[in-house]
């Protein structure tokens, strides 16, 4: 146990001279759902994945990489963009979500349509408004590159790049994007003398009472799909319905984590709220009765006094993980 904690600390310092630790499950996190047995994280696989994540050859005209819309300093989101901004200045229809704590997610995207992280990159690579490329063409560009065949050989034993090794390498990088070193994490794990201020402690209680049924600790999401009453939006995005074709899923979106909110504005699937006080104001007073509105919001949303909102905002600040957004291990090298 002690050794594990020490390791986590070592990890959090992101000292590039330390030996590569691989994937370490934070002590206070649940067991991951990703099938690591099919893709154990190795130093070579991770480093290749990191290079691919920042590789513009993944896009049709070699102009943008994964890192273009998932920027580390914004907790791997596209800060300031309500919806994602892709190739040829094309706009997507949803806000780019953070690459964060993916090992604990049973599915991906706002509608949860993708059930396996190893299949996820195919979507942004081929989407017309994102990278507008084919996976086969990316592989041929990488195969012709002076560096990549040798890097794939190092990681997977063969210079021949396959869809599987390409995808699994990207997964290895994304799985290592773990945010578990916020002030909240220190308090919960009783590390050092870290304690909440009175205001943060009051906010913590309120979040547990008023938000915890969806934003469940310690990941601050229960990974469910819900209609939170923000209304249908200009493009009438049906959300989860598109993946299941089930009417009871219309207008439901994945519950996002509350971690790193200071870095990930704007909020909601279409990025319509630019500030957190606006989000709290919504739950307090503007919940709309669209089909499949979540039962916990049906009776007047979530009433919060002005003081309670201040306390909640103070607590949410303790979920910001500076180490995560500055960890050199996860940066473009």
């Amino acid at each position: 146990m002690l050794a594990l904690i020490v390791l986590i600390f070592a990890c959090s310092k992101a000292d590039m001279n330390l030996p590569f630790s691989g994937f370490i499950n934070p002590a206070h996190f649940p067991q991951p759902v990703y099938k690591f047995a099919n893709n154990p994280v190795t130093k070579d696989g991770f480093e290749l994945g990191r290079r691919l994540f920042y590789e513009p050859r993944l896009s049709r005209d070699n102009s943008i990489s994964c890192g273009s819309c998932h920027i580390q300093s914004s907790a791997f989101t596209q800060h300031g963009h309500d919806v994602s901004h892709g190739i040829d200045d094309r706009l997507g229809r949803r806000n780019s979500p953070p690459i964060m704590n993916l090992a604990w997610m049973p599915n991906y995207m706002w509608d949860g349509g993708i059930f396996d992280l190893d299949l996820q990159p195919i979507n942004p690579i081929t989407a017309h408004e994102e990278m507008d490329e084919s996976v086969a063409n990316v592989i041929s560009k990488l195969q012709d590159h002076p560096d990549y065949p040798a890097l794939f050989k190092k990681a997977y034993g063969s210079e021949t790049i396959t869809t599987a090794t390409f995808m699994k390498s990207l997964s290895q990088f994304m799985l290592m994007c773990i945010s578990s070193n916020s002030k909240y994490d220190s308090v919960i794990q009783k590390l050092g003398n870290t304690q909440f201020t009175d205001e943060e402690a009051a906010g913590y209680k309120l979040v547990q009472q008023k938000c915890g049924s969806c934003h469940a600790e310690p990941l601050f999401t229960d990974n469910s799909f819900r209609n939170n009453g923000i209304g249908t939006g200009l493009n009438d995005d049906p959300g989860r319905y598109e993946a299941t074709l089930n009417e009871t899923d219309r207008y439901k979106f994945k519950v996002p984590s509350l971690r790193n909110l200071a870095y990930t504005a704007p909020y909601m699937h279409d990025g319509r709220y630019y500030r957190l006080d606006a989000v709290l104001a919504h739950y307090n007073s503007t919940v709309q009765h669209t089909p499949n509105l979540d039962p916990v919001l049906i009776n007047g949303g979530i009433p919060m006094t002005a003081q309670e909102q201040q306390q909640i905002l103070a607590f949410l600040n303790t979920l910001n993980d500076k180490n995560f957004i500055s960890d050199k291990l996860l940066s473009e090298q």
Binding site: M109, D111, G113, I114, L119, I122, N123, I125, T126, A127, H128, S134, V135, A136, N137, I139, T163, E242, A243
Partner: peptide, 13 residues
């Protein structure tokens, strides 16, 4: 890995 033109795979779902 097929492209959008003749690919037989949906990436988003």
């Amino acid at each position: 890995s097929g492209g959008m033109d003749d690919g037989m795979y949906w990436g988003w779902n």
